[in-house]
Amino acid sequence: MNHLIVYAHPFEDSFNHAILESAVAALESKGHSVVVRNLYALGFNPVLSPVDFKELRSGNTPEDIATEQAFIKNADAITLIYPLWWTGLPAILKGYIDRVFAYGFAYQYSKKGMVEGLLASKKGFMITTHGTPNMYYDASGMTQSLKQTTDEGIFSFCGVATLNHLFFGGISTSDDLTRKEMLKTVQLTLKELF
């Protein structure tokens, strides 16, 4: 199976990077092919510009968008790994979605105005970290809201079947043992799903 991991964290010594390494190791241990698109390392431009709109509408997909779309086309599964900032995707990842999951590539509208997801053959998985403890987000309904805006609002909208979404909260105050358990959860979950 071909896996595409889209990774959005600026620091190589972050816990998100440890999650990335664990995810890659788990998938490769089962013989899967893994491609990582580290958006910060790539210097990915997240701004959907007027030029982008014009080019996409005329069928002349800008080169950097076409490159990322080719990785998505080749993938059987797409995994997003990112920290939660202000209850949303980091700007670089939001811009990746804005630019790469474009109309006519990831979705379109039928003649009756219904949404048609064009990535229906793909499976999706997300891993999100945040500083706020999970119990707070769970009790306030925030976890469910986040799932609705990402799992449904991005993946399902484009036809991608979301298999799971792991949320790791309290990262800034968690100890090494807790973090090791989180990494174990990442590996076990990926091995079970794929």
Rank of each mutant, 00 (worst) to 15 (best):
V6I: 13
A8E: 00
A8V: 01
H9Y: 09
H9E: 08
P10V: 05
P10R: 07
P10L: 04
S14I: 00
A18R: 12
E21V: 08
S22W: 07
S22R: 05
A23M: 04
A23W: 05
A23F: 05
V24W: 11
A25K: 09
L27W: 06
S29G: 13
K30Y: 08
G31R: 10
H32I: 09
S33H: 15
V34G: 06
V34C: 08
V35T: 15
V36E: 03
R37V: 07
N38T: 07
L39M: 05
G43C: 05
P46E: 05
P46K: 04
P46C: 05
S49I: 02
D52G: 06
K54D: 14
L56T: 00
S58T: 12
N60D: 14
N60R: 14
T61S: 10
T61A: 12
I65P: 01
A66M: 09
T67A: 14
E68D: 09
Q69S: 13
K73N: 15
N74K: 15
N74F: 03
N74Q: 15
A77Q: 08
L84S: 13
A91P: 06
I92W: 03
I92Q: 03
Y96M: 02
R99P: 02
R99G: 00
V100I: 10
F101R: 02
A102K: 04
F105W: 08
A106L: 11
A106H: 07
S110P: 09
K111F: 11
K112M: 13
K112V: 11
G113H: 13
V115S: 09
E116T: 10
L118A: 08
K122R: 11
M126C: 11
I127G: 01
T128S: 15
H130P: 02
G131S: 08
P133Y: 08
Y136K: 10
Q148A: 14
D151Y: 03
D151G: 06
S156G: 07
S156A: 15
S156M: 10
T162W: 03
N164D: 15
N164Y: 09
H165K: 09
L166Q: 05
L166G: 02
G169L: 04
I171R: 02
I171H: 04
S174E: 07
D176Y: 01
L177S: 15
R179L: 06
K180H: 09
E181Y: 07
L183W: 05
K184R: 12
T185A: 12
T185K: 14
V186S: 01
V186N: 00
V186M: 00
Q187F: 01
L188G: 03
T189P: 04
K191P: 03
K191Y: 06
